[in-house]
Design a protein around this nucleic acid. Structure first.
Length: 934
DNA sequence: GCCTCCCGCCATTCG
DNA sequence: CGAATGGCGGGAGGC
């Protein structure tokens, strides 16, 4: 002990030094990056970006082999011992020391962090707040990009994190559990997690919403609310059993951890505790928000639902208390993520703590209603790949009309299948589950297929027109416009709860910016076309071009999240209604309406559909198809890969972003296959080009010093994934369908994100929710400049994907410099090119944060620059390294401070608002709460 | 006083 | 069997 302590002590100072050191040196990224001085950032945004880039590169280098983090640390030469030591140290160390360290960290935020010795005792006082989980989470998040470049290894070492953040591991676990529940991280192994950032967020949320609907949480919440109201009067003593609803549902009893396709299976071994509470609780909690109409959930309601029993028995009280404690923990993390905010609901009783959802609202619902939900214990996990395959298959099938599969492809597919089988059979394949799962899923698969098919059919039929109506033509995210648009537009959200209004308003801003949505221009949104859009950008440092993959998600409105880094403003939203009317009432109302619509129609409908489908089609058939499809795409990929490899000469298939594939496979795959079919010939060429391009990229990367791909274990699966990628690019079909679909079903106003939408099930389409959700988001940006010729084409062509692809090739091929042209939408505009070259100058909004704090350096490589599309929408290009979401980059600027926007007033109770309605100042999503705390 | 929720003991589960 | 996880609730800080 003694020795240890001493060591620890000594370490302390070194650490601080280390910090300093790191800061200066880029090597360390963490610390330096993590807490950057606002000023610095602001001043030299560019620099910052550069740094980020550097870092990333570095990481990549270290990549596969070592965890970046670790590596750095190691590099530093820190003696750090593993956790255990840390623990001991921590415990052993005097609080002072600890505080000091913490202090240091904090300091850095503030401004200069580095004084090693500053700490001293003065700091001890670090108020509790500074130790809060929320703050810790902020710090944690600051270390990673929202949209990490999959190519890099985004490993997270708990030890490192704990060390860097100076906290006990226990705390890290809390954060990790919540993040894991959102699939923002996934456990790789013992002390190892993989960072996914928000790449999967949309998907996850969509899924959670589904599950939530399935469980009828919305209804439950309502009941509880009502009851509580009623009871209050009576005697609150016990609440009557509210079981009713639940009783019926009981089946759902336990909800298991909801997994996401791309993410889950990683650590098969480690997942045993999946159903553990914090994780599940977190998911449930999120679900509550997603299913409740006013996106506000009070703590007690949430606790009740989470406990399971509505009624609170005596003994339950303790349980209740515990649950609430946990909820606070979860809420703090969610707040850091900007998914929720604290508000207060005032009821007759008084004001209750509650949280309001401030996260994205419009994620694609459908995705896979299919079962991904975790309800069942069985492992759904592996299924992902399967699903994807299935989707692909189906989609292709469904799309038949539109697209026919090319004969050549078919051949390939067959051969591929065979290969695949072999591969799969291989023991090593991580997926073992898959096989098993596949067995399980045949039905599901079939369902999926059916669904997809249906959708496709519908879409094809309906959609053909192609002109999507911009739901909101108002492209501009401008609030004013929006408002105007909205009004007239009628497409109002069905439920006009103040909240909603608020939400919409709030979201609008940010979202609009980010989202490429459809607005008028369906023209072409890259996002829509394919989840991943490859773009070539000038390389920052490397000089080589980077390929950029834009995620639809990125486009997606992430209003909240993105901007945040910047300012941590404190938002004081109050949800309370001062007016007599209890929020609860409001909520309830809204809720009910919503509830009715949503839950009922959608889920049930969905289910029905599924069942029908299932029955109709023989699973086997479906499965078979599936397999074929599955094989196909991969096969292609494989082939391509092989070629690549050959070319590269042995380079590992390093796809820059294996992971991306991973994640997105779903999206990608499906479309891809279909696309491929449609344009197979072209495709091949395209692929080739693509490959070439990839090669280039790889080369550049390598040159840059980046290790191309993470050396991920080459599992057959991985390969698949990778392989899939190419396809991924071609995603078009879905989009179209989506569009049409959208137009169809939803009001134009609603925007779904296209990409995701692809898979909408009919049900989804039918579902009302969208309406509610009408999110401004869609409005906004067309990232791709509408003007671009492509857009027009896109419609016409069967598969936008193809177009994209082609474009890509064209653009890409031209070269790095050539620019964005690659990106379908953007490319065309002349402006882009110009912009490309220059590293973004002016706006670096993201980094500027005022106050403080945590700059997320990383993320993606910083934005290169914004491009403004002719439309006026800013387009941001991000370097490959990290996929930044547009949000972060350029847009943010706008969004950051839009107070004006924010000022939207919703009618509700405003406590602030004069008329009884509530006013929400939402605009600032970006605000971080952190500060406020203090 | 109540609301939050940090802290860390200690049971589990993993490797 | 020790380390890694994480459930859990006492109890204290903050308002």
């Amino acid at each position: 002990m003694h020795g240890i302590i001493c060591w620890k002590m000594s370490s302390t100072s070194p650490e601080s030094q280390y910090l300093r050191h790191t800061t200066q040196t880029t090597t360390s990224n963490h610390k330096g990056n993590v807490f950057a001085e606002p000023q610095a950032l602001t001043k030299t945004p560019r620099k910052a970006s550069t740094q980020g880039t550097v870092l990333t590169e570095i990481q990549s280098n270290m990549g596969p082999l070592t965890t970046p983090t670790k590596g750095r640390e190691t590099g530093t030469g820190e003696p750090w011992t593993p956790t255990s030591n840390l623990k001991m140290l921590m415990s052993a160390a005097s609080p002072e020391i600890r505080n000091r360290e913490k202090y240091l960290c904090m300091d850095s935020e503030g401004g200069d962090a580095m004084d090693p010795e500053l700490g001293e005792e003065g700091e001890k006082q670090i108020s509790r707040k500074e130790k809060s989980l929320g703050l810790l989470c902020h710090k944690f998040l600051a270390r990673y990009p929202d949209y990490p470049n999959p190519a890099l290894n985004n490993n997270i070492s708990l030890d490192d994190v704990a060390t860097d953040l100076n906290v006990e591991r226990r705390r890290i676990y809390d954060i990790m559990n919540v993040l894991e529940s959102l699939h923002m991280v996934s456990r790789l192994a013992k002390n190892r997690y993989t960072w996914h950032g928000r790449a999967n967020l949309q998907q996850t949320l969509a899924k959670l919403r589904q599950v939530g609907e399935e469980h009828r949480y919305g209804q439950q919440m309502q009941q509880i609310r009502q009851r509580s109201l009623e009871k209050e009067f009576d005697s609150d003593g016990e609440e009557k059993e509210n079981e009713e609803v639940e009783g019926g549902e009981q089946g759902q009893k336990e909800m298991f951890f909801v997994e996401l396709p791309g993410v889950e299976f990683k650590a098969a071994s480690v997942n045993s505790r999946k159903d553990k509470s914090l994780r599940v609780m977190s998911q449930k909690f999120v679900m509550l928000f997603l299913v409740s109409t006013p996106r506000v959930v009070s703590l007690d309601v949430a606790a009740r639902i989470l406990i399971g029993e509505v009624q609170v028995a005596d003994q339950d009280k303790s349980k209740f208390k515990t649950k609430v404690r946990r909820l606070y923990d979860i809420a703090n993390v969610l707040r850091s993520l900007k998914l929720i905010e604290k508000v207060h609901v005032t009821e007759e009783k008084g004001r209750k703590p509650a949280f309001e959802w401030t996260g994205p609202e419009d994620f694609p619902n459908v995705k896979e209603t299919t079962a991904t939900t975790a309800t069942a214990k069985r492992k759904l996990e592996s299924r992902t790949s399967v699903d994807n395959c299935a989707k692909n298959l189906f989609s292709s099938l469904g799309s038949k009309r539109s697209f026919t599969r090319h004969p050549s492809l078919i051949k390939l597919a067959k051969s591929i299948q065979e290969d695949r089988r072999k591969i799969n059979s291989a023991p090593t394949s991580p997926v073992k589950n898959d096989s098993s799962s596949s067995e399980f899923f045949p039905t599901k698969m079939a369902q999926l297929a059916a669904i997809c098919k249906i959708q496709l059919d519908q879409q094809s039929n309906k959609v053909v027109d192609g002109t999507p109506k911009p739901a909101v033509t108002v492209t501009e995210a401008l609030p004013a416009q929006q408002k105007a648009a909205k009004k007239p537009g009628a497409p109002q959200p069905p439920v006009l709860t103040p909240t909603e209004a608020r939400d919409s308003t709030v979201h609008l801003t940010p979202r609009a910016q980010f989202t490429p949505q459809p607005t008028g221009a369906m023209s072409f949104h890259p996002a829509q076309c394919s989840p991943l859009i490859p773009m070539l950008l000038p390389q920052h440092q490397g000089g080589g071009p980077y390929a950029i993959y834009m995620h639809p998600s990125s486009f997606r409105p992430h209003p909240l999240t993105r901007p945040q880094p910047t300012s941590l403003a404190v938002r004081s939203m109050t949800f309370e209604d001062k007016t007599g009317r209890s929020p609860s009432d409001v909520t309830v109302q809204g809720h009910s309406s919503a509830t009715n619509k949503l839950p009922t129609s959608s889920p049930s409908a969905l289910k029905r559909v599924c069942s029908e489908r299932t029955s109709e089609e023989s699973p086997s058939k479906a499965k078979r198809i599936d397999s074929s499809t599955r094989d196909t795409s991969p096969k292609l990929c494989e082939i391509l890969q092989a070629r690549l490899k050959a070319r590269r000469g042995g380079l590992v298939s390093s796809r820059p972003s294996p992971r991306a594939l991973h994640l997105d496979p779903e999206f990608v795959n499906t479309p891809g296959s279909s696309v491929a079919v449609a344009a197979n010939q072209t495709l091949e060429q395209n692929l080739e080009t693509f490959l070439e391009k990839e090669e280039k990229v790889a080369t550049s990367d390598s040159e840059a010093g980046l290790t191309p791909v993470r050396a991920v274990p080459l599992n057959p699966q991985h390969l698949h994934t990778e392989t899939l990628i190419p396809t991924g690019y071609l995603i078009p079909i879905s989009q179209q369908s989506l569009f049409s679909y959208k137009d169809h079903n939803t009001e134009s106003s609603k925007d779904f994100t296209p990409s995701y939408n692809i898979y909408h099930t009919p049900t989804a389409g039918s579902r009302p929710p969208p309406i509610q959700e009408f999110t401004p988001t869609s409005l906004p940006l067309h990232r791709p400049p509408p003007s671009s010729p492509f857009s027009a084409q896109g419609h016409r062509f069967p598969s936008p994907a193809i177009l994209n692809f082609t474009l890509q090739n064209l653009g890409l091929i031209p070269g790095p410099g050539s620019v964005p042209a690659c990106s379908p939408g953007t490319a065309h505009t002349p402006e882009h090119p110009s912009s490309m070259p220059s590293p973004l100058p002016p706006h670096l909004g993201p980094h500027q944060r005022g106050g403080m704090v945590f700059v997320k350096p990383m993320s993606p490589v910083p934005v290169q620059h914004q491009m403004t599309s002719p439309g006026g929408r800013p387009l941001t290009l991000i370097s490959l390294q990290q996929m930044t979401t547009p949000e972060g980059t350029a847009l943010p600027q706008h969004s950051f401070f839009h107070t004006p926007l924010a000022t939207v007033v919703t009618t509700s109770h405003g406590h602030t608002a004069p008329a009884g309605t509530k006013t929400v100042y939402i605009p600032q999503r970006k605000l971080d709460v952190t500060n406020e705390d203090t």
